[in-house]
Simulated assay, not measured.
Amino acid sequence: MLEHTIQATRIDEHGSVARCKDAAIRLDTDMDGRADAFNPAEMLLASLAACMIKGIERAAPLLKFAFRGVEVHLRGVREDSPPRMVLVEYEIIVDTDEHDRRIELLHKNVRKYGTIFNTLSSATVLSGQMVRKL
């Protein structure tokens, strides 16, 4: 089993920072919000996007899937009581000349082998598609 650790520290009433390895991410923990940092819900969505992109990076060489770029668009719907994400919708846009069935094969790999994808899909409705960049 793999273990992952981070350390998060409150800087002041306006924000915090999370650190791991040689990296740091500014966190929006201000009750009024702030535009220059990710809030917790946005961090969750960013983690999912990173998982999807990393999954493509892992699967593409195995599948001999050629692509030039990837974009991930996410939308999370949060309910207030109890506070939780009830729905996450995504669109993965791949810049590729591969056939549609190969795009679906890549999408299947992203859904099957993504740690964050699998964790979230067992906790909420997670739906979306992978499409070719036009």
Rank of each mutant, 00 (worst) to 15 (best):
G69L: 01
G69P: 03
G69N: 01
G69C: 02
G69F: 01
V70C: 03
E71R: 08
V72T: 03
V72I: 03
H73G: 13
H73N: 15
H73L: 15
L74H: 04
R75C: 14
R75T: 14
R75K: 13
G76M: 07
G76P: 07
V77S: 14
V77K: 14
R78V: 12
R78E: 08
R78Y: 07
R78H: 07
E79R: 11
D80F: 08
D80G: 11
D80V: 12
D80C: 08
S81K: 14
P82N: 02
P82K: 03
P83Y: 01
P83K: 05
P83H: 03
R84H: 07
R84G: 07
R84N: 06
R84Q: 09
R84A: 07
M85A: 09
V86C: 11
V86G: 12
V86W: 09
V86P: 09
L87Q: 14
L87A: 12
V88K: 04
V88R: 07
V88F: 04
V88S: 07
E89I: 10
Y90L: 05
I93L: 02
I93V: 10
I93H: 01
T96V: 04
T96M: 03
D97N: 10
E98V: 00
H99N: 13
H99I: 12
H99T: 14
D100R: 11
D100N: 12
D100T: 15
R102C: 08
I103T: 03
E104P: 08
E104L: 09
E104Q: 11
L105G: 11
L105M: 14
L106H: 04
H107G: 03
H107K: 05
K108R: 12
